[in-house]
Structure formats: structure tokens, C-alpha cells
Simulated scan of single mutants.
Amino acid sequence: MSWKDKMRHWRQRLAAVDWYLVSGLAFLLLVISAFSLSALRLHDLLGDAEALPIESVIIKGDRQYTSDAEIQAALQSLMRRSFFSADVNQVQEALEELPWVYQASVRRKWPARLKVFLQEQQPVAHWNGDKWLNEHGQVFEAPHKEGIDQLPQLAGPDAMAKDVLTSYRQIRELLQINGFGLKSLSLNARHAWRAVLDNGVMLELGREDKMARIQRFINVYPVLAKQPNKVARVDLRYDTGLAVGWDDAQQESR
């Protein structure tokens, strides 16, 4: 094929091209490129902590045990991000790791704030000496705070914490109706119950029928209180009757 024939062939092929379609595709590619570049620049801008910093964190909710300093320390590294790149889930997790925080919720507040609602732990009892029990019967660890020394002492396996709290409330109510206060309640590994009253009397309740045994103690206590020696311990782990230990004498009555 001669040179002239080749040129004629290419002119024919070019003439057959749909230039309207080609120009349309070229324009589309240009638009896509422009949008991609804009999206990339916007992404960089939204992630720029200097351009769009978090200006403040608004803390709501009643707080007794969690200080502003503790919150600031927990969020220090997370606040170095921009308003849009900050992960509110990470902020929530960081706050909930504070020992006295029970629950936290976090949301963005335009234009440059985070709004946080904190719910603190509500301790209702000491648990196994160095831990706490909240109102839901959940065990948690937290440093001691002033003003909560008068809580009852509860003890038992952690998996049984909710049951111990429920039993404490039931026993306390029955005792209070009859003029007694409940200082502590414990459940040992063999699932046997022991209670200590505000007056120092220890009640051995065993594994079963603890409410009936408490009532038996209530019924007989007026007689025991008339004795010359102070009651120290009452063993109610009998089907009928009880055993009494006295403070000032090595004698028992049954």
C-alpha cells in the first residue's frame, strides 16, 4: 500500500469518528478529575486540626466524683484532631474508662464544639472490701471519695453481685420494719448467707430460707435482749430453733 493510500485510509477512519461523543467523554473526564481534586482538598481541609479545631467541649450531667482535670487528661490526645475528623466513639470510650463514669454520650455541635453528657456511677454499697456496687448490681473499681463511707458492706462472688444486692434490699426492708438496721451481708463460696446488724449482732443464715430465718430472729430477739449478756451471734441454720453466742460469757442457748 502506497503512502497516498495509507493517508486516504486514515482520513476515512477519522471521518467515521463520532467527534460529538469524543468531546462529551473528554468533558466528563475533566469534570470527574475536577471533583476528585476538590474532594481531596476538602478531605485535607476537614482533617486539618489547625484550620478547623475543636474549640471547646461542653460537659453536661451531675458530677460528684469526676473532675474537669480528669476529663481534660482523658481527652487530651483526641482533642488534637479537627472538628470533623474527631471520632466521637473514641471520645465516648475514653470518658467511660474514667473510674467514676458509668456512661457517656457524645455528639458534635456546630461549628466547633463537642457536647458530652456524663452519667456517673451511683455507688450503693462497698463490695468485697475494695470495690463498689452500683444501683444496677454491677461491680466497679474506683478510688475512694469523701462522703460515701456510710454505705453497707456487701460481699460475694462477682457473678452473684446482683443477687446479693437484691437480697440485701429484701432483708433490710424486713429488718427496718421491726426496728433493726442491716450493716453488711455476705455470700460465701458455698452460697451460705451471713448478715451483720447495726447493733453488731451477727446472723448465720445458711443457704436456704433466709427470709424465714430472719423472721425467726425477729420473733425471738425480745427474749434474748432481756438476758444479762449482750447477744453477739445468732446461728439460724437449724430447721427449728437457734443457737446464741454471747459477748461476755462462754455459753450458748438453743
Rank of each mutant, 00 (worst) to 15 (best):
residue 169 R to I: 08
residue 169 R to A: 12
residue 171 I to H: 02
residue 171 I to K: 05
residue 171 I to S: 01
residue 172 R to A: 14
residue 173 E to Q: 11
residue 173 E to F: 06
residue 173 E to G: 02
residue 173 E to L: 11
residue 173 E to D: 14
residue 174 L to T: 14
residue 174 L to V: 15
residue 175 L to R: 00
residue 175 L to G: 02
residue 175 L to H: 04
residue 175 L to F: 15
residue 176 Q to P: 04
residue 176 Q to E: 15
residue 177 I to V: 15
residue 177 I to N: 11
residue 177 I to E: 15
residue 178 N to F: 03
residue 178 N to I: 08
residue 178 N to S: 14
residue 178 N to Y: 04
residue 178 N to W: 03
residue 178 N to R: 15
residue 179 G to R: 06
residue 179 G to W: 00
residue 179 G to Q: 05
residue 180 F to C: 04
residue 180 F to H: 12
residue 180 F to I: 01
residue 181 G to R: 13
residue 181 G to L: 13
residue 181 G to E: 13
residue 181 G to S: 12
residue 182 L to D: 07
residue 182 L to Y: 06
residue 183 K to V: 01
residue 183 K to W: 04
residue 184 S to L: 04
residue 184 S to I: 07
residue 184 S to R: 06
residue 184 S to W: 05
residue 185 L to D: 02
residue 185 L to T: 04
residue 186 S to P: 00
residue 187 L to Q: 00
residue 187 L to H: 01
residue 187 L to V: 01
residue 187 L to R: 05
residue 188 N to W: 11
residue 188 N to P: 05
residue 189 A to V: 10
residue 190 R to W: 03
residue 190 R to V: 02
residue 192 A to G: 03
residue 193 W to Q: 02
residue 194 R to K: 12
residue 194 R to E: 15
residue 194 R to N: 14
residue 195 A to I: 09
residue 196 V to F: 03
residue 196 V to Q: 14
residue 197 L to R: 10
residue 197 L to E: 08
residue 197 L to H: 11
residue 197 L to Y: 07
residue 198 D to K: 13
residue 198 D to G: 13
residue 198 D to P: 09
residue 199 N to I: 09
residue 199 N to T: 14
residue 199 N to A: 09
residue 200 G to P: 09
residue 201 V to F: 14
residue 202 M to I: 11
residue 203 L to K: 03
residue 203 L to Y: 13
residue 203 L to R: 03
residue 204 E to K: 15
residue 204 E to V: 15
residue 204 E to M: 15
residue 205 L to C: 01
residue 206 G to F: 09
residue 206 G to K: 08
residue 206 G to D: 02
residue 206 G to P: 12
residue 206 G to T: 02
residue 207 R to H: 11
residue 207 R to C: 01
residue 207 R to A: 11
residue 207 R to Y: 01
residue 207 R to S: 11
residue 209 D to Y: 04
residue 210 K to E: 13
residue 210 K to L: 13
residue 210 K to N: 05
residue 211 M to R: 14
residue 212 A to H: 06
residue 212 A to L: 08
residue 212 A to E: 08
residue 212 A to N: 09
residue 213 R to E: 09
